[in-house]
Amino acid sequence: MDLDKANASLDTVYTAEDPEALKAAYAEWAATYDSETASLGYLLPFLIPAWVARYVPVGGGPLLDAGCGTGLSGPQLKALGYTDIAGLDLSDEMLKIASGRQSYTDLRKAMLGGPLPWADGHFRAVFSTGVFTMGHAPASGLFELARITRKGGHAIFTVRDKVFEGGGFQEVFDGLERQGKWKPVEQSPWFRCYAIAEPDALVRTFVFEVL
């Protein structure tokens, strides 16, 4: 696998200047996304089920994979017994691949940062990996994720180090807490999101309980 090509694809999505550019970049990348991210040692879709399993009982209600991409997390969660998983993504091409994994009960085209097509409190938990990063979803997308999560449910997501401070994530965290919408439960240490490439690319997983 050509690591240079994989890194070039990564750079393209990180530097997208607007949602249309990001959508176009993922449309072009979709067919080779799985193999190229594997060559980089991309860990997040395979780690997030550990946090989901820690807080969400099997059969406890529907889950949302927010920014599911090609659906790499779906089969992992299905293997753990979770059978009611929805997904959203901005890319038709990525959603088509996710659909082929036969792990999702509902797949919809939507973008974090805008309105989401589910009712208040619909999900037992929402999770998201690799989406709150450069050129992708804004911190404001967390308001909608909190809205569609039921009371007592959990929001579980990663944030890239390079956007955490400048992207206003702590301000959104604190704002939702002041409004009585959620409370912090866990935050991981900063850790690598690629086992092979980009050793300085760090993320942190956050877990909040919705109130």
Rank of each mutant, 00 (worst) to 15 (best):
G74Q: 04
L88M: 15
L80R: 14
R108G: 04
G114R: 06
D89P: 01
G74R: 00
T105C: 11
D84P: 12
D92P: 00
W118S: 02
L90I: 09
S73E: 01
K96W: 01
H122W: 13
G113N: 09
I85E: 07
R108K: 15
K96H: 02
T105K: 07
S91V: 01
S91A: 04
G71I: 00
G87M: 10
R101Y: 06
L72W: 08
S103L: 02
S103F: 01
K109W: 07
A86C: 13
D92M: 04
T83G: 03
L112N: 01
L112A: 08
Y82Q: 10
Q76F: 09
S103Q: 02
C68H: 03
D106I: 12
G81A: 13
K109V: 06
G100Q: 12
G100V: 09
A79V: 12
S99D: 14
M111C: 12
I85V: 13
G113E: 09
P75R: 06
A79Q: 14
L90V: 02
A79P: 08
T83A: 13
D89I: 01
L116P: 01
L72S: 15
L72N: 09
L72C: 13
L88A: 10
A98L: 02
E93F: 00
K78A: 15
G69C: 08
T83N: 07
L90R: 03
A110G: 05
M94E: 00
G81M: 13
G114F: 10
A110I: 07
Y104R: 03
L107M: 03
T70C: 07
K78S: 13
E93R: 00
K109D: 05
G69M: 07
G81L: 12
Y104H: 02
K96C: 00
D89H: 02
Y82V: 11
M94N: 05
D120I: 06
G87T: 07
G81S: 08
K109L: 10
L107V: 04
S73Y: 07
L77A: 09
A119K: 15
C68T: 10
T83V: 09
H122P: 02
C68S: 09
A86M: 08
L90N: 04
L95I: 06
D120R: 10
E93A: 02
L80M: 12
Q102W: 13
Q102N: 15
L88S: 12
R108E: 08
A79K: 14
L72Q: 14
A119Q: 15
G87V: 05
G87L: 05
Q102F: 11
S99G: 15
L112Q: 05
T83R: 10
L72R: 14
Q76W: 08
G113W: 12
D106C: 14
P117C: 15
H122R: 11
S99F: 10
L116C: 01
D106Q: 14
L95G: 08
A98K: 04
D106K: 10
I85M: 05
W118I: 02
G87Y: 01
R101Q: 11
G113T: 08
M94K: 07
G114S: 15
Q102M: 10
